[in-house]
Design a protein around this nucleic acid. Structure first.
Length: 354
DNA sequence: AACTCGTGGAT
DNA sequence: TATCCAAGAGT
């Protein structure tokens, strides 16, 4: 039995979510809003994205506004959302599109832009330009793996699932409403065909679903076991002057937290750092003997995708930043911290009570 | 193909 | 507390 696009679209017409970037029924979606939301939603939940999306659209009403903004300002607006290459590519993409004059309307044209891969190109093309393609995200992978009870584990089975997902689009009803079909798949995955406890009883695709027939739909998709997450350690210095300004520096433009602001500190290494050794990495002269000028504020733990980070925060109260005149970095007034591109890990360090 | 690249909420 | 995992992309 083959899943009916009509059944899904009929369900969607009644159950569709209202989302800020989504056009109302019968209306055309704004490509800028669709693109912006798709980039933000990469590996990120709807609830998390919502306030960021609203803020961006208010601050950058058009893609030209975004294109003309300084990268640091965009990174600051993105701070806390994670995967900061998305923000860098977002900015670069905005500049390219602004230069061209409009978004390309084809999958190939879209995918040639920075930050837009196979999934996002198809999502934008189908939702904003009614191109009959099926973007394969985690939702569609899960739905497809369940429809066909695919036993092969992800991520190896991805190609196979891609082909199965594309076959969903053979149904003429799907091709007549590409945007609705795509978003119906998202809503089905988010609300019915959920990872842990799918609501098969109210699923429009219950009948053709082999996973449902198996009696244990939550077993799909099968995933390969993930490897252990290593731990890393470091020490950062929270230098504060009498006015409450904080000494910050910028990280390299690419790589982990690329272009973001941070507290100065040691490199992050595989073993815990001895305080005495760490003091050598401070931007100002600190010694174990002279421990009236500094104290250990505490420790923060932060989990990245591929390692856990343990940072010791050393608070240093200074009269002024004079001794830092030839150091890399800059003084940030306390009331300007909110405008800095500070990632969550550094927000934690700053929030630690002295 | 396998890694890198964030974060927070749910379970 | 530990694990999962959310509208993935780039290398």
């Amino acid at each position: 039995m083959t899943p009916s696009a009509f059944a899904l679209l009929d369900w969607y017409a009644r159950q569709r979510r209202v989302l800020p970037w989504r056009a109302l029924a019968g209306q055309t979606a704004d490509p800028y809003a669709v693109w912006l939301s798709e980039i933000m939603l990469q590996q990120t939940t709807v609830v998390t994205v919502m306030p960021y999306f609203e803020r961006f659209l208010k601050h950058y009403p058009t893609i030209e506004d975004l294109a003309h903004a300084p990268l640091q300002e965009v990174l600051a607006a993105w701070a806390g959302l994670g995967y900061y290459s998305r923000a860098r590519n977002l900015h670069a993409c905005a500049q390219q599109v602004a230069a061209i004059g409009a978004f390309p309307r084809s999958v190939e044209g879209l995918q040639a832009l920075p930050g837009i891969g196979a999934y996002t190109a198809r999502a934008i093309a189908s939702i904003a330009f009614a191109v009959p393609v099926v973007p394969v995200d985690g939702n569609v992978e899960r739905i497809t793996a369940r429809l066909h009870a695919v036993d092969a584990p992800l991520p190896g089975a991805r190609k196979h699932l891609d082909r199965l997902a594309a076959s969903l689009n053979l149904d003429p009803a799907a091709q007549e409403a590409p945007g609705d079909f795509t978003q119906a798949l998202f809503d089905l995955g988010a609300g019915i065909c959920t990872p842990r406890r799918p609501s098969c009883l109210v699923c429009p695709w219950r009948e053709p679903c082999k996973a449902h027939a198996s009696g244990d739909p939550a077993r799909f998709p099968v995933r390969a076991p993930r490897k252990v997450r290593p731990e890393r350690y470091g020490v950062v210095f929270r230098l504060v002057d009498r006015q409450g300004a904080v000494w910050l520096r910028h990280r390299p433009a690419t790589g982990l937290l690329g272009g973001m602001a941070e507290l100065p500190g040691t490199a992050w290494q595989d073993d815990p750092v001895a305080i005495e050794a760490a003091l050598q990495a401070a931007p100002v002269a600190l010694s174990m003997a002279d421990d009236l000028t500094w104290k250990v504020a505490g420790q923060i733990r932060h989990v990245f995708t591929h390692f856990g980070l343990n940072l010791t925060v050393i608070a240093v109260q200074m009269d002024d930043f004079g001794p830092l005149h030839n150091q890399e970095g800059f003084a940030c007034p306390h009331d300007a911290l909110g405008k800095q591109a500070l990632p969550s890990v550094m927000q934690k360090c700053l929030a630690l009570p002295a």
